[in-house]
Design a protein around this nucleic acid. Structure first.
Length: 809
RNA sequence: GGUCCAGUGGUGGAACUGGUAUACACGCAGCACUUAAAAUGCUGUGCCGUAAGGUAUGUGGGUUCGAUUCCCACCUGGACCACCA
C-alpha cells in the first residue's frame, strides 16, 4: 500500500517549483506540438469524462519529452460565448467574474491529475491582448471581401435572442438551449467560407493523420455536387428561371418547375401576386412556419400554382407549369428546381398529390422499373430526342455540352455549406471592429485602434431587438468616423464563440506578441500542431472554421502552413454507470476530485486509459478502478522487495524489451488500453518470479526501464519510486529506454499443428524450423497420429514460425 | 432517406497482413491467512460433457487447407447529416 495523497501532492509541488513542465527550446532537438482542444469553463466543473483526452495528450507529451523532443503542451480557455454568458445570467454574476471563477475551478481540477501543461503559456480568448488579433483577422477578411453584411433571413433563437450559424443547430433546435429556431430577416455579418469550400474539401486528401470518419463528416458537410444550371424561359414573365440539377439526363422528364417561396423571382412577380390571393396566402403561411415544421419529412408536400405562367424546357421546347412549394429550399442552388416526378421521390410525391404528369425517360438497364414509384438510379434514356439510347452518365456530359453550345445553361458546382453567420446579438463576445458612418457607410476600425475593448455594461442580458446590449452604451457606440470625422456608430454585434477558437493554437506559440498575430520564425518552428485531440462534436464546426481561418491567414502570409493540424484523434465519451451521458439531470456525475482523493490520480489516469479504445464511448465503472490501483500497488511492491539477481532471467528480460517496444508504439498510436495491458503482463511476470525466488528476475537497470515506460501513465508513483531507488533527478529528465532487437526475438515458438484446420497439438520448436522437420515431429506426436489413422494425407500447409496444417481425406 | 462505423464470455475489452478466438482487467466460485471481516495471495472460470471430444465471434450463405478478419444478403445498435434537387 502506498499513500497516493502524500505522493501526489509532493510531486505536484516539486514539478511546479522546479519548472518541470516549461516548454523545452533546446537547440538541435526536434519539436513536437501536442494540443488539446481548449475547454469552455462552464459552471458545472469537470466530470471524469472531461480529462480523458487531457490524460492521453499528457502521456504522449511525457513520452516525447523523454524521447528527446522539445515539446509544446499548453492549455487555455475558450471563455467567450453563450454557455459562459447564460451561466452568468442564471447565477446573477457578471460574465467576466463567472468566467474567471470557473477557470479557477477547472484549473484546480486539472492540476490534481498531474498533467504536464506549461502554464506560462496559458491563454484566454477574453483577454483583450488576445482578441485584438481575432479582431485583426476579421479586418483582414473584410479587406479581402470575405466579411460582408447580409440581410437574408437567418436562424434566430428566441430564447438566446441571437442569430445563429447553420452549424449551431441540432435538428432545427438551438444547440445551446434546445429552443425552436425561427427564420428571421436581419442585418448580420457573414464570412464567405464558401469561397474556401473547394480547398477545404480537396485538402482533406493531404490530412493522412486524420481519421477517415471525421474527414467523411467534413466532406458531407461541405456537400459538393456537380451538375448544371439551366435557363428556363418564362412565358408571361420578363425573366427566365435558373434551376440547378445533378440529373440533367432526366430533363426530358421535367413536367413542371418549382420555386422556393422566398425565391427572388417570386418577389419580382409582386404585381401579379396581388391578383393571386392563393399564392399570397401560401407564402405568408410558409413564412409563419418554423424551419422544423418546414423540413419535417413526414408532412405532405404543399404548393400552389402560378397561374398563367409557363416555363419552356430548352431541350424540347415544351411548356411546363410553375409552382411555388416549400419543399424547395431557397438557400440551396438557385432556389428553383426542375421537377422530374418519374425519377425523383419528392417530385413524384408532389405530382401524385396534384395530379401532375409523370413522364418516364430513364429505363433501368437490368431490372424492371416499378410503376408505383420513382426510378432513381441511372439507366438508359428514352423519349429524350437526340439523346435517347445514351446511358445516364454519358448523357449528362453530352447534354451539358449542348446547353453550353446553345447558351441556355452551363456546368455548375454547388455546395451544401453556407456562408458563416458571424454576428451575435449578445454581450459576451469580441466586438466586431466596424464603424457605421452615415456618409461613408461601413468603415473599419483603424488597426492602430485595436483592440476594440468590450465595455462594461449595466445590463448584459440580451435585448431581442437585433442589437446587442452594447447598443445601450451611448458614449461607446457614438464615435467619430475615422474617415470623414463625421458622426458615426460602432457595430454593436459581437463575434460567435467559434471566432476566438479559430487560431488559439497559434497564440500559444507566442502568447505575448503585441506586434503581430504570431512571430513567423517561431511559428515556422512549432507549427503545425503535430497531434490534436478533442471531442467528435467539433468535426463539422470548430475543425472546419479553424481550417478556413488558417487557410486565410496562410493566404495573407501570416502563417507558413496551410493546414493547422497534422494528426487528429477524437476522444470517446465516458458515460455514466447507467449508460447515459453524465449530467446533473440524471444524477450520474462522477467527480474526478473524489476519485483522485480516494484511489489516486495515477489510478484514475491508468483506469481511464485502460477502459477501452480511446475513440470509443464507454460506461464508467468505479469497480474497474480497483484493477488499476492493484496494478500500481504491484509495481510499488516490486520496488520495495527488489533484490538484484546475479544473472537476469532470460524470459523476463525478453518480455521487458517486448513491452518497451509495445508501450512506445501503442502510445503513439493511441492504443493506451493495450499498452497498459502489456505493462500488467510484465508486472505479473516479475511478481510471479519474485514469489518463486529470493531475488528479482531482472537487474536494477532493467527495473528502471520498467519505471520509465510506466511513468507517462502514473507519473507521481514513478517519480516516487525512482527517487526512493536513489535518483536525484526527475525520471522525466531521463531518456526513454531503447529495446534490444536481439532480445525480443523468440528462440523457440509453439508451432500449431492442425489436421483439417482443427488444432490437434502444439509443439515447442526452434523458430526457424523447416517444413520437413516440423512434419516429421508432428507425425511422431501421439495425438496427431490418432487423427491421421486410416486417413490419406492430401497436402500440408506450412506457415513458417506459426503453424502446420495437415489436410487429410 | 443518405454517408460512415460497430456487433466477440456475466461485464469492459484483446487478437499482427486470413493462421492456437476470448490476452489484460472487472465480476463470480473455491482455498489459504484471520476469532471474524476487509485487504492480500493461490486456484478455477465461453457453452455442452465425468472424460475423450464437440461447439462458439449478431443471422444465413460464399471464397479458402484454414475466416472475428475477405465477399454477398439480412438483423440489431450507434454517430453524423437530412426535402441539398
Amino acid at each position: 500500500m502506498y499513500n497516493h495523497q502524500t505522493i501526489e501532492k509532493k510531486w505536484q509541488k516539486i514539478w511546479v517549483e522546479t519548472g518541470a513542465h516549461k516548454t523545452g527550446v533546446a537547440k538541435g532537438k526536434p519539436k513536437y506540438y501536442v494540443l488539446d482542444m481548449f475547454p469552455y469553463p462552464s459552471g458545472a466543473g469537470l466530470h471524469v469524462g472531461h480529462p480523458k483526452g487531457y490524460i492521453a495528450t499528457d502521456i504522449l507529451a511525457r513520452l516525447k519529452r523523454m524521447q528527446g523532443y522539445n515539446v509544446l503542451h499548453p492549455m487555455g480557455w475558450d471563455a467567450f460565448g453563450l454557455p459562459a454568458e447564460n451561466y452568468a445570467i442564471k447565477n446573477k454574476l457578471h460574465p467576466r467574474k463567472a468566467t474567471e471563477k470557473n477557470i479557477a475551478t477547472f484549473k484546480k481540477q486539472i492540476n490534481l491529475l498531474g498533467l504536464s501543461y506549461d502554464w506560462d503559456l496559458e491563454i484566454s480568448t477574453i483577454d483583450p491582448a488576445y482578441y485584438k488579433w481575432t479582431q485583426w483577422a476579421f479586418l483582414q477578411m473584410w479587406k479581402k471581401g470575405l466579411a460582408y453584411e447580409s440581410f437574408e433571413p437567418i436562424n434566430w433563437c428566441p430564447s438566446c435572442k441571437t442569430g445563429l450559424a447553420n452549424e449551431d443547430l441540432e435538428g432545427g433546435l438551438c444547440e445551446r438551449c434546445g429552443s425552436l429556431v425561427e427564420q428571421k430577416p436581419m442585418r448580420q455579418w457573414v464570412l464567405r467560407i464558401t469561397d474556401y469550400a473547394e480547398r477545404l474539401l480537396n485538402d482533406l486528401e493531404k490530412l493522412s493523420g486524420w481519421e477517415e470518419t471525421i474527414k467523411e463528416m467534413q466532406r458531407n458537410w461541405i456537400g459538393r455536387s456537380e451538375g448544371a444550371e439551366i435557363d428556363f424561359a418564362v412565358i408571361g414573365g420578363d425573366r427566365s428561371i435558373k434551376v440547378f440539377t445533378t440529373r440533367l439526363d432526366t430533363i426530358f422528364g421535367c413536367t413542371y418547375i418549382v420555386l422556393a417561396p422566398e425565391n427572388s423571382l417570386v418577389e419580382a412577380l409582386q404585381d401579379k401576386i396581388k391578383n393571386w390571393p392563393a399564392v399570397k396566402r401560401y407564402i405568408t403561411e410558409t413564412k409563419n412556419k418554423t424551419d422544423l415544421q418546414r423540413t419535417d419529412l413526414n408532412k405532405a408536400k404543399t404548393g400552389v400554382i402560378l397561374d398563367g405562367l409557363t416555363a419552356i424546357n430548352p431541350f424540347d421546347k415544351t411548356a411546363v407549369p410553375i409552382f411555388v412549394a416549400d419543399y424547395v429550399l431557397n438557400s440551396y442552388g438557385t432556389g428553383a428546381v426542375m421537377a422530374v416526378p418519374a425519377h425523383d421521390i419528392r417530385d413524384f410525391e408532389f405530382a401524385k398529390k396534384y395530379g401532375l404528369r409523370i413522364k418516364t425517360v430513364i429505363l433501368p438497364v437490368n431490372d424492371i422499373a416499378q410503376e408505383s414509384e420513382a426510378y432513381l438510379a441511372d439507366g438508359r434514356l428514352i423519349l429524350s430526342g437526340e439523346f435517347s439510347g445514351l446511358d445516364s452518365a454519358d448523357a449528362r456530359v453530352k447534354m451539358v455540352d449542348w446547353l453550353e453550345n446553345n447558351k441556355t445553361g452551363a456546368r455548375k458546382v454547388n455546395y451544401k455549406i453556407k456562408d458563416w453567420v458571424f454576428s451575435r446579438q449578445r454581450y459576451w463576445g469580441e466586438p466586431i471592429p466596424i464603424i457605421h458612418c452615415a456618409k461613408c457607410g461601413v468603415v473599419p476600425v483603424l488597426e492602430s485602434e485595436l483592440p476594440v475593448v468590450l465595455p462594461e455594461v449595466k445590463s448584459y442580458e440580451p435585448t431581442g431587438t437585433g442589437e446587442s446590449p452594447l447598443a445601450a452604451i451611448k458614449d461607446w457606440v457614438n464615435i467619430k468616423c475615422p474617415k470623414c470625422g463625421g458622426p458615426a456608430k460602432r457595430e454593436t454585434n459581437t463575434m460567435p464563440q467559434w471566432g476566438g477558437s479559430c487560431w488559439y493554437y497559434l497564440r500559444y506559440i507566442d502568447p505575448n506578441n503585441n506586434k503581430a498575430l504570431v512571430d513567423k520564425k517561431l511559428e515556422k518552428y512549432w507549427s503545425p500542431v503535430d497531434f490534436y485531440v478533442g471531442g467528435a462534436e467539433h468535426a463539422t464546426r470548430h475543425l472546419i472554421y479553424a481550417r478556413f481561418w488558417h487557410k486565410f491567414l496562410f493566404d495573407i502570409g501570416a502563417v507558413n502552413y496551410d493546414e493547422p493540424f497534422t494528426k487528429l484523434r477524437q476522444v470517446g465519451l465516458i458515460m455514466g454507470e447507467d449508460g447515459r451521458k453524465m449530467s446533473k439531470r440524471w444524477g450520474n456525475v462522477i467527480n474526478p476530485d473524489d476519485i483522485a482523493a480516494r484511489y489516486g490520480a495515477d489510478a484514475l489516469r491508468v483506469y481511464e486509459m485502460f477502459m477501452g479504445p480511446f475513440e470509443q464511448a464507454v460506461n464508467w465503472n468505479t469497480n474497474g478502478l480497483t484493477g488499476a490501483r492493484r496494478f500500481l500497488e504491484k509495481i510499488e511492491k516490486l520496488s520495495v522487495t527488489f533484490v538484484a539477481p546475479e544473472k537476469e532471467d532470460e524470459e523476463a528480460l525478453s518480455l521487458l524489451h517486448k513491452t518497451i517496444k509495445k508501450v512506445g508504439e501503442d502510445i503513439e498510436s493511441f492504443n493506451f488500453n493495450t499498452a497498459i495491458s502489456a505493462l500488467m503482463i510484465l508486472a505479473n511476470k516479475l511478481t510471479d518470479y519474485n514469489n518463486q525466488n529470493n531475488y528479482s528476475s531482472v537487474s536494477s537497470e532493467s527495473f528502471f526501464s520498467l519505471l520509465k515506460i510506466l511513468s507517462p501513465f502514473a507519473p507521481h508513483l514513478a517519480e516516487e519510486i525512482w527517487e526512493k531507488l536513489g535518483h536525484k533527478k526527475s525520471i522525466f529528465k531521463s531518456s526513454w529506454p531503447e529495446y534490444d532487437p536481439e532480445l525480443i526475438k523468440d528462440k523457440t515458438i509453439n508451432l500449431v499443428v492442425s489436421v483439417n484446420g482443427k488444432v490437434r497439438a502444439t509443439l515447442e520448436v526452434p523458430v526457424d524450423i523447416k517444413e520437413a522437420d516440423a512434419l516429421a515431429l508432428a507425425l511422431q506426436n501421439a495425438n496427431i497420429k490418432k487423427w491421421l489413422e486410416g486417413k490419406e494425407i492430401v497436402k500440408n500447409i506450412f506457415v513458417p514460425g506459426k503453424l502446420l496444417n495437415i489436410v487429410v481425406k
